[in-house]
Write a protein that binds this DNA or RNA. Structure first.
Lengths: 160, 160
DNA sequence: CTACTTGCAAATCATTTGCAGATGA
DNA sequence: TCATCTGCAAATGATTTGCAAGTAG
């Protein structure tokens, strides 16, 4: 169920659940059963997911009335505020990914199979900063999507 | 405000309305009064806009029953398909910009005043292509947003 | 205790769709 | 002519909210 990340042997960061608890306390919010369950599910895989996928993984708990749909949405928002998740919009639906204990990255987005391939380029960041400087713009971050077709889909396409 | 790109004095492309007409014909679709009106409004300014803004500019025509809300949405979709508009999603709303007779670009997005500053970097594209090659990924295009605070807002912030 | 939370059902809100009448080629 | 459009009203679908009852600290 949860053999999460193989972190470097020296743990430099607290577990997400702890980070979240800390965030909640700082905000005068409470560590509830449902927030615990949701964070556990969210961090049980390193995947991109949307609210619906998360909810379907929580089906059983929802059936047992341990968690509800609105609470999932509410908690996802808090996890983003806490800096534990990154949110992006793909084809109208909100997609989330881990944003803690995981390196910054951008995505190659395959328009055939909708898969996301992660990459990182320090050079692109440098160019970004140069452009920003030129515009006297203070950078907080960026988001980049490269759209196209992945190797697998191109292969399938040729065969078909 | 934005005197970004100075377009070449020699027009190398047909007017958007003509391009659209061509696109429609190719698809067995018709050049109607409302499609004409919408394209005219869309190309009367070089701005970023969302459906609501466009509709509010068309208020008068809507009051006169010359155009309706659903038709605006339908036509926006066709303009995107035709390659005349680029669509992006910002804070949950769809934002459009001209994508014809205008150079490709990315954006600096000021989170304080929500303004978009356009920029282009051939070097970033080269790095993008290099990354894609490394992943055996066929690039169709990309989208990049640099978030932060623009010069004007930083100035205001300091004064305040 | 009691302020923060939750689940439920209902509300939003931008966008989309079914359909009967209107219209462009 | 007649297939394509349009406006209208109603439907959608993901997300949000009001509120009374539940629970963490």
């Amino acid at each position: 169920m949860s053999e999460d990340f193989t972190l470097p042997s020296v743990r430099v960061t607290a577990p997400p659940a702890d980070r979240f608890a800390e965030f909640l306390k700082r905000r005068g919010k409470r560590v509830t059963q449902q927030r615990r369950l949701i964070v556990e599910q969210v961090y049980s895989h390193h995947d991109h997911f949307d609210a619906d996928e998360l909810i379907s993984h929580l089906q059983e708990l929802i059936a047992q009335r341990k968690v509800s749909r609105p609470t999932v949405y509410r908690t996802l928002g808090e996890l983003v505020e806490a800096g534990l998740l990154r949110k992006m919009v793909l084809d109208g639906r909100s997609v989330f990914e881990h944003d803690y204990g995981y390196p910054r990255h951008d995505h190659l987005y395959c328009q055939m199979c909708n898969s996301l391939i992660e990459f990182h380029s320090a050079e692109i960041e440098q160019l970004r900063d140069a452009v920003a400087r030129r515009h006297d713009f203070q950078v907080h971050g960026h988001r980049m999507f490269v759209t196209g077709v992945c190797a697998t889909c191109r292969r399938v396409q040729q065969e078909g």
